[in-house]
Design a binder for these strands. Structure first.
Lengths: 218, 218, 218, 218
DNA sequence: CATGAATGAGGGTTCATTCAT
DNA sequence: CATGAATGAACCCTCATTCAT
């Protein structure tokens, strides 16, 4: 939501007025509380009341900022996942080989996970018997662009003519699950994870290098 | 309760009496309705009332069979996923090489997905902006056994000394995402998917064979 | 479940047949379970389900014996309190003085309490902040007869012309509360309690004898 | 919550604003409805819904004021019975003899009953076969203090060394039952009742004065 | 008669949402 | 804008009672 767009007639100080600051703080408070609740009970079971309860705000105030919990959730996704897009694109442009290209994608993704663990917790609930993963639209879009790149690489003969559908899915799957494991380590190393994922998918298990360093596991 | 009194002619209370049949039918009706609701709105947002509503039972009847929606959900998992376990074990025992072993695992999993798509729909919700994946405990157990096997293979020098943590995660990720894609195809071929996943993870992208047949995509 | 018994329409053996015995046992089981439940949560909050649950019987069976929880409760009162009536009357007839008469009444009442503590527990609930006392109709009737006797004694000049209304109430109150205390003692002595209550009401505090023996208190 | 922002003209949030008035009225409405229901069916059988139904409030509103029916009940007790405590204490301090002391206690209690009959109705249900009495914690505490005073009097030789346990119980019993009778009279006279109860317990039946006035009875 | 599953009314409680202050 | 009480729908669950077996 572009706050700037709200420019109303008579020059309401839109920049640093105390009012505007409070508004941003309130909005942020709701977003953070919502992230907590979503992470704890899932979006489906979350309630607006519970979100507001973890805030200093009154229940009615919620509706000055959002219209529903889905609305907050979308805002959370937008704020968080969108930030990954430009870097992915940059990585793609900078890549000089298929290896560096794929490894770059993995790395951006893992960096993003590690730097925004709080947000990822929302997408990664362990409730009772279940582990839940959510693919945000942004992620899907990112990986769709990857798919296009792969198809281009195949067209240019850089890659064998494989099932791109399956391949993209497999890459996403590897990214998510390895990313999840990564987050549970005590000192997560996105670079190492990216190297692993790239080596696995490009070279296969048999070509994977020997482990040199022991890694902390949960 | 006088047990002796049950001595009536042809076999007593437990097998084919009308009562017992009705009970099984009711239980099944609840399970099916629950699978529907879970698939539509997720376990978190599902309500017992909604489940019962899709049944011709009275609301209170639900509690003659289950104690909560989580209980139904667990029953769904048990009924469905548990059936995969014996086959996984058989596959493991029959394997003569690391290739056949891993491919066997993938195949059992994909077969299971295809043969029980309804159940998998519960675990695979596309609601609004999200795609949700659930890892059932059974699946985790299955893949944990796989992890042990991998570690044993490493110990015997059959595989390089890689990060088994990451590897297992990656295998699970591939299985899930490729499985998901598989289910969206018009004539899903579990065998082909298993071959793909095995080749990818064992041999890497570069060693993947050329596609021979074009496959219908969604 | 005595299935066999169904076969005999005419000439149901009414005395010692297995059927009749079972019926009595069932009835008794319900009464005892009900006494328990009433004692724990009170008649108002008690539920038939809970009563039946403490029984080996099926829920429907309850209705072969009683029609409601109030019905069971009435049966409990009848069984228990009615037994006190004849003794009270006997005591009254045997009394040769006002002292022996009042003391006799108290003693019958306290004897009854001690010998039937389980029943009295029903009438004496301690739930949360409350101590509840119930006056059964039988008790009221018993004390109303007492009132008549007192009025007669006044008419004959054996007692001063006091407020019989208040006096009867006071006697009932003393009986109930002293009885309650009595029941909480480790070795309750109805005779001592009766002596105390009689001395108090007839002679007043100042005329009460010195305590000779120390009494166990809760 | 910005407290400063509330600085509007005539006094802020806590005293006479329309909101605050309504809140008090609603709370009172619930309390009164609850007293009615409790008096009719008892606390155990009372339902929150029935309480709210006798109010023009919505069902959910109840929970803005209380958390359970027990909570309302406790509020009723607190509002009502606690008010008796200070007067009891005053009476005790002012007493110059054992007679005036005990009579004072009785009088405060009877005054309280008469002046708050509605509240006492809650504690005094006649439903079907039963008459129920409740001893609130406040009353028990009040009488326990009395017990201490009695023990002190015995220590000082002002009273014979009697069973204080029984004596306190007896006093409570007399207070309750005589109080109950008192309330059913058309023009209840707490002073007369207190005199009667004191004379009975201190002097015994035989020492009771002759009745001078006939009293209306129910 | 005993059984125990089915029924649906009803009670407890939470919730999203509104709106006077 | 913020507040937070009121609202009533809807949820969870238990219950009394019936009735086919």
């Amino acid at each position: 939501m572009d706050q700037a767009a709200k420019n109303q007639p008579e020059a309401s100080t839109d920049n640093g007025s105390k009012r505007e600051i409070t508004k941003l703080q309130n909005r942020q408070a709701i977003l953070e509380a919502a992230a907590e609740v979503f992470a704890e009970v899932g979006v489906g079971a979350a309630s607006i009341r519970e979100i507001v309860r973890r805030t200093d705000l009154a229940s009615g105030t919620f509706y000055n900022y959002f219209t529903s919990k889905e609305d907050v959730f979308q805002a959370l996704l937008d704020e968080s996942a969108l930030s990954m897009r430009p870097e992915l694109k940059a990585e793609r442009l900078a890549a000089t080989s298929i290896e560096s290209f794929i490894e770059g994608c993995f790395r951006v993704f893992f960096d993003y996970l590690v730097s925004d663990q709080a947000m990822f917790a929302v997408l990664r609930r362990n409730s009772g018997a279940l582990r839940v993963r959510m693919h945000t639209p942004q992620m899907l879009v990112a990986f769709e662009e990857l798919e296009e790149d792969i198809e281009r690489a195949i067209g240019q003969g850089l890659l064998p003519d494989i099932d791109t559908d399956f391949l993209t899915s497999a890459l996403i799957g590897v990214a998510f699950e390895v990313g999840d494991r990564l987050l549970r380590r005590q000192s997560p190393d996105p670079r190492e994870a990216a190297r692993f994922a790239t080596a696995l998918t490009l070279g296969g298990v048999k070509a994977l290098p020997l482990k040199k360093t022991s890694v902390a596991k949960t």
